[in-house]
C-alpha cells in the first residue's frame, strides 16, 4: 500500500506525510549521537563516533565535525557522504557572502540557506532527500553565540541545548534536566560529555569514540573555534571525571 506514496519525494501520502523524508529521519536515528550545548561564553558540540572496525584508520581528521567558516562549526548525524556535499555547499555560500559584503555571514542566514537546499529535495522530485541532520554552533555580532539544528525536511530551529542521531529523545530529556540558563562553557562541556556518556551504547568514553568541538571568543574578542584533537579529548575526559568504566580504573 505505502509503495504508492514513497517512491517519490514529492508526493504526500493520504495522511499528509512525506515518506521519503521520514525514512531519511529513520536513517539518522541510527547514526551516532551528536549533542550541542549553548553557554553564555561559548558553544559546545560533542558527537559519538561509531567505530566500525579495528582496522579503520583512526588518526585522520574529524569525520563528524566540520568548519563552515571563521565563526561557525557543525556536527553531523546521518550519512556522511550526503553531509560532505552540504558542507561544501555551505562553505561556498559563506565565502560568497564574505566576498560580497566583506563581513561574515550571520549564523542564521547560513543555516537558512543550507536548509533551502535540503527543502528543495523534498519537493523537486526524482531524488532522495539528504539523510543528514546538522547541529550548528556559531557566533555573530547580532545574536552572539548560537546553536541551531536542522533535519532532512529543511526545517531548522535555534536551541539552548539539542541533540541529533541515535537516542536523541533520551539525550534531550537529560539535557532538559540538567541544562541551566547562564551556564559557562566549562559547565557546558561537562554537560555535553555527561549526556553523551549516558546515551552511548558503550559504557566507556574515549577519544576513539567521541569527537568534540567548541566555539568561543579569545581575549581579543575574536571568534575561535576548535575541533579537539584526540589527546585533548582524553585529557578533558580525565579532568571532568566523566570517564566511564574504563579499564584504567582497575589498573
Amino acid at each position: 500500500m505505502s509503495r504508492r506514496y514513497d517512491s517519490r519525494t514529492t508526493i504526500f501520502s493520504p495522511e499528509g506525510r512525506l515518506y521519503q523524508v521520514e525514512y531519511a529521519l529513520e536513517a539518522i536515528s541510527h547514526a551516532g549521537t551528536a549533542i550541542g550545548v549553548l553557554a553564555k561564553d561559548g558553544v559546545v558540540l560533542a558527537a559519538e563516533k561509531k567505530v566500525t572496525s579495528l582496522l579503520l584508520e583512526q588518526d585522520t581528521s574529524a569525520e563528524k565535525m566540520y568548519v563552515l567558516n571563521d565563526n561557525m562549526l557543525c556536527a553531523v548525524a546521518g550519512m556522511n557522504a550526503d553531509a560532505l556535499i552540504l558542507i561544501n555547499h555551505s562553505r561556498v555560500i559563506a565565502q560568497q557572502y564574505l566576498k560580497e559584503y566583506n563581513e561574515e555571514i550571520p549564523c542564521e542566514t547560513l543555516v537558512r540557506r543550507l536548509c533551502d537546499v535540503k527543502q528543495g529535495y523534498t519537493q523537486h522530485g526524482g531524488l532522495r532527500p539528504f539523510g543528514v541532520s546538522f547541529i550548528f554552533a556559531g557566533f555573530d555580532d547580532r545574536y552572539g553565540f548560537q546553536l541551531y539544528s536542522s533535519n532532512p525536511s529543511g526545517n531548522y530551529s535555534g536551541w539552548k541545548a539539542t541533540s541529533a542521531g541515535a537516542n536523541t529523545s533520551s539525550a534531550q530529556t537529560l539535557l532538559k534536566q540538567d541544562y541551566k540558563d547562564d551556564m559557562t562553557l566549562e559547565e557546558a562541556k561537562e554537560l555535553a560529555l555527561k549526556v553523551l556518556s549516558k546515551t552511548m551504547d558503550s559504557t566507556s568514553l574515549s577519544s576513539e569514540k567521541i569527537e568534540f568541538a567548541t566555539v568561543k571568543l579569545n581575549s581579543k574578542g575574536i571568534v575561535v573555534h576548535r575541533i579537539w584533537k584526540p589527546t585533548e579529548i582524553d585529557q578533558l575526559l580525565k579532568s571532568t571525571g566523566v570517564v566511564g568504566d574504563d579499564d584504567d580504573e582497575f589498573s
Partner: peptide
Amino acid sequence: SETFRFKTNMYKMRED
C-alpha cells in the same frame, strides 16, 4: 584580493 581570500579560505578548510 577578495577572490583570493575566498579561494584560500576554501583551501584552508579542505586541506586543514
